[in-house]
Design a protein around this nucleic acid. Sequence first.
RNA 1: GCGCCCGUAGCUCAGCUGGAUAGAGCAUCAGACUUCGAAUCUGAGGGUCGGGAGUUCGAAUCUCUCCGGGCGCGCCA
Length: 604
Amino acid sequence: MTPSAGPQTHLFADMLARVRDAAASVLGEGTDLSRIVVEPPRDASHGDMATNAAMVLAKEAGRNPRDLATAIAEKLRTDTQIDKVDIAGPGFINLTLKPEVWPEALRAVLAQGKAYGKGTVGAGHKVNVEYVSANPTGPLHVGHGRGAVFGDALASLLAAAGYDVTREYYINDAGAQVDVLARSAFLRYREALGEDIGEIPEGLYPGDYLKECGHELVNDYEDSLKQMPESEWMPIVRRRATDMMMAEIRNDLARLRIVPDVFFSERSLIEGEEPDPFAAEPPPARAADIVVETIDSLRAQGHVYEGRLPPPKSGNLEDWEDREQTLFRSTDFGDDVDRPLLKSDGSYTYFATDIAYHKSKVDRGFADMIDVWGADHGGYVKRMQAAVKAVSGGKAVLDVKLVQLVRLLRNGEPVKMSKRAGDYITLREVVDEVGKDAVRFDMLYRKNDAVLDFDLAKVIEQSRENPVFYVQYGHARGRSIFRTVAADMPQLDTGAAALKAADLTRLTDAGELSIIRKLALYPRMIEAAAQAHEPHRVAFYLYELASEFHAQWTRGGKESPHLRFIIQDDPQTTLARLALVQGIVTVLASGLDLLGVEAPDEMR
RNA sequence: GCGCCCGUAGCUCAGCUGGAUAGAGCAUCAGACUUCGAAUCUGAGGGUCGGGAGUUCGAAUCUCUCCGGGCGCGCCA
């Protein structure tokens, strides 16, 4: 196996396999090797890679770590790709690879191009990533944007790791809130007919965004809706209003380069309406009420019963009424209390339809599903995971990623917002103001469970220190080298084939070798970030790679001109260094693409 | 009261599923542009990883317990 054997493997995975073989040959087959890790050492002077194999296996083997390390090291010393094996500290095995490994690692980047870093850990696994899933009752705000960006980048990351990914948006179009939306739209419809509607009553949506909907209803129905009782116009107006809102939301998402594969309507679970109003192909016929079906099936398995719940602990008992109701036995699956499926008026709780929805994911073949929710839904996680267990017979796993709230600031001052008053900053406004790339990168440059301060002024004014421009500048700078060399050394062939054939052993500078090591780490980073469901790792990796590149660039200043990437009278060295730059540019572009951020050729 | 999340440099945050001497950016101070792009780089100072106990070869990371902050706790979604 060589490092360039293809996307199935990479330097670290390859070495991990070798270390496991060595460990197995010392301790015998059947040893648990799963905890062994091969990673870059903290300190480069320790070598190229380090493994904890001896320390992890010592206890089970009943040997002391240093002795075991000695035995494993002995095996590794025979490996053709390993130059030096040292034992250090409590039993680390430090590996120094043969010098020729690194040129090959860089050549693998050049050979694979955009495919470099793509892995296969997810091969054969379908994953459903559900994100945003906002009520279609108003424009998206910045908090929705964070969930959307996070979910989208996570989906891209999983796809890069080989998973078969579906990006899904669950339209909450069945609750009381969309009825409120419809009444609000109906008011705008009357307004469009010339009626003086005065102040928007308390409890309805006051935003101007429904005025257009009112006009459209007049165009299509004239004043006929006005003659109908609410029960008749409600379905018409509701459908029109939610469709319009969803069109707006899709537009907002598209501006962030977010395009879900599936829009799944909650109402479709209940009424058998089209589940995806935007589907290219008509949906398959459905049973009239999938929620009933789901509950019945759970009841048949003994997971649903009629019973009573203790009063809620929130202190607010005003509306509390002790009564027998239909409950899901979620405590059998790890939840704290059993959860109601029906409201007192007989309609489904949100949870009930959500169970049916997640069952549909199971039915569609997803054993892995990820939901991206706002942090205020944290109390909902256990019951949903319980439901997924019940509905899949324990075969499916739901991971819920909670996205913390976004504090919108301008020059450090909180931006005042009130949804009730209808005066809040929309996601679209923010994207228009600071740009898609800054929004996306900023939101991905943090863990999902950390509160995010998003300062509109700083994102623009401090653009010089903004990480997104730092990384993009790295890419543009790399591309500019190729423009320069084309002008200064027109006789030099810098095509892909020439770069691949370059004499990469000329890359001997410590900075150059460090960059190659960083590039070699990329596939491992993708794999780990995908398995941990942590797209922010990609952003940090890119920042570090750009940083090493910027540093290497500046080293070739007037103190050490021999370290420049372009050496006019040395075409061979120039070519080798251009190959390195190409590797950097390739990985930067690839990583930025995962984050949905552009990789510009220039940014003057 | 219970559950979940968070607490790391003055500020904003990483810390690669338990590894070696805890790292970046901003801010502060001192430096590098007749340069392949200075939207860049080099260096310095700055830490009881909220406190305490435990688990083990080894803890910012796992367990317990306090402290402090956030979210949630039928018929909102």
